[in-house]
Design a protein around this nucleic acid. Structure first.
Length: 426
RNA sequence: GUGGGUGUAGCUCAGCUGGUAGAGCGCUGCGUUGUGGUCGCAGAUGCCGCGGGUUCAAGUCCCGUCACUCACCCCA
C-alpha cells in the first residue's frame, strides 16, 4: 500500500456515485446547443504550441506560465490544450467548414490543462463544455449563444448564478480607449507588478480584487463609454434580443477576460457559492481570431462552461444527487438453472434499453435483497424453484413492497416496470 | 509561483500535559425454513501521510518532505 500510485497533483477523479452527477451536468450543459442545431466536434487534446501562442495571446497568463508544453520525438513543440476556442477555429480552417453554409455552429466537451496551483474549483485538468459560432455578426447570434449557457444552468435547477455582461469594443474603438486607460493608470498609485500589468494588458487592472486598487479604479474610464457607433448599436441590439429571450443579466463594465482574443460582446457566469473560483462559464466575441490563425477574416463568438465548477455549484445549491439509481431492475436467481434463465432475460431487456443487474456469486436471498436496496434498484425480480416451474418471475416494487408473479419474458417484465409508473428522473 | 491550515479505520472525526489506538456511520455475518429499508447481537479493518531527529518510550515534541485544502494570482 505504501507505494500505491496517486493521481498527479491537481487532477480530479470522478468516481461513483458523484460520477453520475458529473455526467448529468455535462449532458445538461450541452443539450441546449444540440437543440439549437449545433454540430458536435471532437478535437485533439494536444496541438502545436504555436496555435495557442498566436490564438490565445503570448501576453496572457494562460500562455506565458500555465501551459503543459513539451517537445515530441520529431522536435516539435506540443502543448496540452489550455482552452477550446483556438483548436476549434484551427479545425474549422483546416477542414474548410467555413466554405459551406454560414454560420458554422459547433459544440464540444472534454478536458483542458493548465499548470496552476490547484484549489477549490481549480484543477490542472479541467472539464469544459463549449460552443463556437463562426461567420456571423448578427447580434441575435450573440444572444443565442448566451442563452444556450443560461438555459444549461437553468435546466440543472441552478438559481443563484449571475450573468455579467459588457462590450469590449472592436479594432477601431478599443485602441484609443486602451490609450486613455493607460494614461489614467499612470496617474494611479500602483505597486510595480500592477504597473507592469498596466503596460502589457491595462484592461486587467480594472477587475483587480484588492481594495486599494479598486478604489482608484472607480474613477477609471470605461470601455462602454468609448464604444464606436457600430459597437454601441451592436451591444444595444444584443441586449434587446436577450430581453426577448427572457434572459436577465447585470451590466458589468469592469468585466475583463484573460484571453486576448475577445472583442465586443463579452460575458461571464458567476456563482457566489463557490468561493474564490466563482466563474462557472464565460465567453464572448473574437472577431479577429480567424484571420489571426490564417483563415478568412470572419467573426466568431463562443463560450466555455466549467463542468467541474457547475457540478460544484449544483452541490452548493443542494441539487445533487440528480439520480439515485442507475439500474431499473435487479434480478436475484436462486439456483444454477435460474441463473441461466435470468442471464438470458437480462440480455433481452438490455437490448430493449432497460438497465438491469443481477446478484452474482450465489448470494443468499437476504443479502441479495440488501444489495438491491443499496443500489436503490426500484424493482427486484426474484427467480427461484417455484417461479422456474411456472416459467415466471416474482417482480417486486421496492417502494411499496408489493410483489407480482409475471411470465419470465422481456415483454412481461417491461410491462410490469411501466406499471409501477414511478418518476424515473427529476 | 507566494502565503495560511490540515494529514489517525472505507467515510466523518476523538485521542488531555509523550507510555505502541477509539467513537459514530458504513461493511460482513447471525436473529431457522425463499425477501431489503427499522431493531438487536456478533465480527473484520489501521506501516496514526512519508523520512529523519529528541527520548527508556512519539499518533502525541522538533526538522524535512509529500499530499490535500483555503486564499493571493489567474480563470472554467
Amino acid at each position: 500500500m505504501s507505494d500505491a500510485i496517486q493521481a498527479p497533483k491537481g487532477v480530479p477523479d470522478y468516481a461513483p456515485p458523484r460520477s453520475r452527477d458529473f455526467r448529468f451536468v455535462r449532458e445538461a450543459l450541452s443539450a441546449p446547443a444540440v437543440l439549437a442545431g449545433y454540430d458536435y466536434i471532437e478535437l485533439p487534446v494536444f496541438e502545436s504550441t504555436e496555435l495557442f501562442v498566436r490564438g490565445v495571446g503570448e501576453s496572457t497568463d494562460v500562455v506565458s506560465k500555465e501551459m503543459y508544453t513539451f517537445t515530441d520525438r520529431g522536435e516539435r513543440s506540443i502543448t496540452l490544450r489550455p482552452e477550446g476556442t483556438a483548436g476549434v477555429i484551427r479545425a474549422i480552417i483546416e477542414n474548410r467548414l467555413d466554405k459551406a453554409g454560414l454560420p458554422v455552429k459547433l459544440w464540444y466537451a472534454g478536458p483542458f490543462f493548465r499548470a496552476e496551483r490547484p484549489q477549490q474549483g481549480r484543477y490542472r485538468q479541467l472539464q469544459q463544455v463549449g460552443v463556437e459560432v463562426v461567420g456571423s455578426d448578427d447580434p441575435a447570434i450573440d444572444a443565442e449563444v448566451i442563452a444556450l449557457a443560461y438555459q444549461g444552468f437553468q435546466s440543472l435547477g441552478l438559481r443563484d448564478f449571475f450573468l455579467d455582461l459588457t462590450s469590449l469594443g472592436c479594432a477601431t474603438c478599443r485602441p484609443p480607449y486602451r490609450d486613455a486607460l493607460q494614461d489614467f493608470l499612470l496617474t494611479c498609485d500602483l505597486d510595480p507588478e500592477t504597473r507592469q500589468r498596466a503596460e502589457i494588458n491595462p484592461l486587467r487592472v480594472l477587475d483587480d480584487k484588492r481594495e486599494s486598487v479598486r478604489v482608484q479604479m472607480s474613477e477609471a474610464p470605461l470601455m462602454v463609454d468609448h464604444l464606436c457607433a457600430e459597437c454601441t448599436q451592436h451591444y444595444a441590439s444584443v441586449r434587446e434580443f436577450l430581453a426577448a429571450m427572457g434572459v436577465t443579466w447585470r451590466e458589468n463594465p469592469r468585466l475583463v477576460r484573460g484571453l486576448d482574443y475577445y472583442t465586443r460582446t463579452t460575458f461571464e457566469f458567476v456563482h457566489p457559492g463557490l468561493g474564490a473560483q466563482s466563474g462557472i462559464g464565460g465567453g464572448g466575441r473574437y472577431d479577429g481570431l480567424m484571420a489571426e490563425l490564417g483563415g478568412s477574416d470572419m467573426s466568431g463568438i463562443g463560450f466555455g462552461l466549467g463542468t467541474d465548477r457547475t457540478l460544484l455549484a449544483c452541490e452548493a445549491e443542494g441539487l445533487t444527487p440528480f439520480k439515485d439509481s442507475h439500474i431499473q431492475v435487479y434480478f436475484i436467481p436462486l439456483g444454477s438453472q435460474e441463473r441461466l434463465t435470468v442471464i438470458g432475460l437480462m440480455q433481452e431487456l438490455r437490448l430493449l434499453g432497460v438497465s438491469c443487474d443481477m446478484a452474482f456469486d450465489f448470494r443468499s436471498l437476504k443479502s441479495a435483497m440488501k444489495h438491491a436496496d443499496r443500489l436503490s434498484a426500484p424493482c427486484v425480480g426474484v427467480l427461484g424453484e417455484s417461479e422456474l416451474e411456472h416459467g415466471s418471475v416474482s417482480m417486486k416494487d421496492m417502494a411499496t413492497g408489493t410483489q407480482e408473479l409475471v411470465p419470465a419474458t422481456a415483454a412481461s417484465v417491461l410491462e410490469f416496470l411501466e406499471g409501477t409508473n414511478r418518476e424515473v428522473r427529476r
